[in-house]
Structure formats: structure tokens, C-alpha cells
Design a protein around this nucleic acid. Structure first.
Length: 391
DNA sequence: GCCAGAATAT
DNA sequence: GATATTCTGG
């Protein structure tokens, strides 16, 4: 005999994928002329974690459902296991119907929408009075009709609020270029209400937006402003310092030494603004002002003097200086040709950068930095990551 | 009827 | 997973 009062949580082994599909809170409508019998059925269903509503309140809908046709049956005697598996009947019926007659699906949706129950899954079960045997607590029914009225739970549209979008961006920025895929972002966002599809869709939109911004140039100033807004003191310090540096670069020769830039003594006073962000390990040298520029700390120059730097066209490229000659003019971002030669096609102290026509620095290895062409180094300061150096 | 934004199909 | 297409609400 079934132990109705102490059903095991899940006595029916389900395939993993089926288990995943269990619709939490699946609503079941129990109908019975006999109130005792009805209560008993309700109790059983509740034990199976269904949400049960009563027959009387929705009689009209039940009639309607029956008129549409009972979709499936549970044969007597009804066992707890079978009740537990109602949802699987619904799923099977749903997929079968969808395959065989898409119009049925539409019809069902229409009915349910009309009832303003478009987000509710429904199973209707009917029992007859004589099917309930109180003495041995077994439900004996001729048939239990299962009427699946709604076959597809209408998906809730995700509203990408400012907050949700920020959370998305946070996850997006946290990942490297090639890791920025829906599933990774989904994981980082850690929001159970989102699906991979939601994120994929939003990602597509986001990329599109970024492309448009990049193409139009819109957003650079906004980003800069954002940087100022977030940290006006430090940002302006760096900004001013970079402008100083730009002037300094016209004052005389500079050399890159062991990852640091050395400037003539007379430039030192112009460098003071950078002290706050300089590497504490570095010192001002007798030879001049020598310090690691935070932006250059991201420049990655192995010593192998590579002269070409194949890079992914999907990567963003930022402009910068020719690392060989700090006195050189600004090189705008490389947009197309990634297979490039270094300056003068000659060995250099630094490597793994690439220069096209002696005019471009592929900053693919020197990312996260962009200078303005010509005069003011900081005026196109735009990357959010730049703010990281202030942490 | 258009558009942006989201879902769904390929 | 990326992209194209369709759907939907304002």
C-alpha cells in the first residue's frame, strides 16, 4: 500500500533533464463532487508540491477545459507516484501537441489569456465520489482526467534597468575580451532570474552599442567626464600631469630605462603631480626624473624584439607613443592592419609592439590607454580601466 | 506605423 | 556562441 502520509520527497527516479523541467508551483485544479474526496486529493497533490485551487471557484473554466478535451488520464488506482508525475504528462503532451498541431497551442494560449491566467500552468483532475475508499486510503478512480489548458508559460520579459545593466557591465568589464560570452557573464552576474538567452541578447545589444560609439567617437568625452566625476582630484591630477609630460617631451631627450622613463632634470618640477601615483619602488634619480608611468606599466615589452604583432581584429587598439622614441608624435589607434613592422624595421630596445608605416603603434599589448593626437595627452583619456590605477 | 529593446531562430 | 530575424510594448 502507498504510504500517502509519508511520501518520500522524490521516490520516482527521473532523468536528470526531466528533473530540471519540473515546473515549480505547477497549479493543479482538483475537482470532486465529494468534499471529503476532494480534500484528500488536495492533500495528496500538495504533498507533491503542486499548488492546488478548488473546483467550485473555477467551475466555468473547468467546463471549458473539458470541452476542449481531456488530454490525458491517470488510471485507477491512483498512486501517489502518478500524481507526482502529472507535470511530466503535461510536458509530454505539450511537446507532442506542439509537434503535431501548432494551432492547438495557439488556441490554448488564447483561451488562457482570455482568462487572464496567462502565466499559470494548469492541470485539471476530476474524481468521482465512489472512487475514494476511506477504509484503505487508496484512491480508486475510473479515470482522472488531466486537462492541460495552458501549455506554455509565457516568458516574462526582462527589463534591463539601469541597475541591472550596470551589473551586466561590471561582469562584462571584469572579463577578458575572449571570455566575454553569455555564460561567463551570466555566472558573474549571479542572478537566478536571468537566463543565458537573456544575457546573450543583451550582450548582442551591448556590443552593437559599443561599436556605434566607437565608430562615432561619441562617448570618449563622456567617459572622461565620468572619470572626473568619480575621482575629480586624482583624475585631474593625472590629466594635468600628462599634459605636463607632453610639454616635457618637447624639452629634450628622454630615455626609457628598465621600464622607467627618464626625463631631464629640468622637467622634474612638471612631474610632481605624478608622485602620488608613481611606483613607490622607484626613485627620482640624479640623472633626472625617472619613474614608471602608470599607463606604461601596462605596456608589455618583452625583450625579444619581435617585429610583428599579429593581433585579433576584434581586439581594440589604442594609440600611444612609439616606445622607441618617447619624443615621437602620438600614434593613433591602429584600426586595420595588425601585421606590422616596427620602426625603421630595426632591432630595438623594446619589442612586441608593431608599427605600421612608422606611424602607428599597435597598442594591442599596450592597451587601456589613449592619448590625444598632438598636443594634449590627456584630452582623450577615455578608458574606464584607467581609473584602476587610482585604486 | 515606427522604434528600441527583448526574444527567438538560424 | 554569434548573428539574423521576429516579436512586442510604448
Amino acid at each position: 500500500m502507498e504510504d500517502f502520509d509519508n511520501p518520500t520527497p522524490n521516490p520516482i527516479p527521473l532523468k536528470a533533464e526531466e528533473d530540471d523541467q519540473f515546473p515549480i508551483g505547477l497549479k493543479v485544479l482538483a475537482i470532486d463532487a465529494n468534499i471529503v474526496c476532494l480534500h484528500y486529493l488536495v492533500r495528496l497533490l500538495q504533498k507533491c508540491q503542486y499548488k492546488v485551487v478548488s473546483a467550485n471557484e473555477e467551475l466555468e473554466m473547468v467546463k471549458r477545459g473539458v470541452m476542449e478535451g481531456a488530454e490525458d488520464y491517470l488510471l485507477k488506482p491512483v498512486r501517489l507516484q502518478e500524481l507526482k508525475n502529472i507535470w511530466q504528462h503535461v510536458l509530454r503532451k505539450r511537446s507532442a501537441r506542439k509537434r503535431s498541431n501548432p494551432n492547438l497551442l495557439l488556441l490554448e494560449q488564447a483561451v488562457v489569456q482570455e482568462e487572464d491566467h496567462n502565466s499559470i500552468e494548469r492541470v485539471t483532475i476530476t474524481m468521482d465520489k465512489q472512487d475514494y475508499d476511506e477504509s484503505n486510503e487508496i484512491v480508486k478512480l475510473d479515470d482522472i482526467n488531466i486537462v492541460a489548458l495552458s501549455s506554455s508559460k509565457k516568458k516574462q520579459r526582462v527589463s534591463w534597468t539601469k541597475e541591472l545593466h550596470e551589473k551586466f557591465v561590471e561582469a562584462y568589464e571584469q572579463l577578458r575580451e575572449k571570455e566575454r560570452v553569455p555564460n561567463n557573464i551570466l555566472k558573474l552576474m549571479n542572478d537566478p532570474s536571468l537566463t543565458r538567452e537573456n544575457v546573450a541578447s543583451h550582450l548582442q545589444k551591448h556590443r552593437d552599442t559599443l561599436r556605434k560609439k566607437k565608430a562615432s567617437g561619441v562617448g570618449k568625452l563622456a567617459k572622461q567626464k565620468n572619470l572626473y566625476d568619480r575621482n575629480p582630484t586624482k583624475a585631474s591630477t593625472l590629466y594635468n600631469s600628462m599634459n605636463h609630460m607632453n610639454k616635457v617631451s618637447n624639452l629634450g631627450p628622454q630615455f626609457r630605462i628598465n621600464g622607467e622613463f627618464q626625463f631631464p632634470n629640468r622637467a622634474r618640477s612638471s612631474m610632481e603631480g605624478l608622485q602620488g601615483i608613481q611606483n613607490p619602488q622607484s626613485t627620482w634619480t640624479a640623472a633626472g626624473s625617472c619613474f614608471p608611468l602608470p599607463e606604461f606599466k601596462w605596456f608589455n615589452f618583452p625583450s625579444n624584439n619581435s617585429i610583428s604583432n599579429p593581433c585579433d581584429d576584434n581586439e581594440q587598439h589604442f594609440g600611444g607613443f612609439d616606445p622607441i622614441n618617447i619624443n615621437s608624435t602620438y600614434y593613433p589607434p591602429l584600426e586595420t592592419n595588425c601585421n606590422t613592422l616596427n620602426a625603421n624595421n630595426s632591432p630595438s630596445l623594446v619589442g612586441n609592439y608593431a608599427i605600421e608605416n612608422h606611424n602607428y603603434v599597435d597598442a594591442g599589448q599596450c592597451y587601456r590607454m589613449q592619448f590625444n593626437a598632438g598636443n594634449s595627452l590627456g584630452s582623450l583619456l577615455m578608458d574606464d580601466d584607467l581609473a584602476d590605477i587610482f585604486k
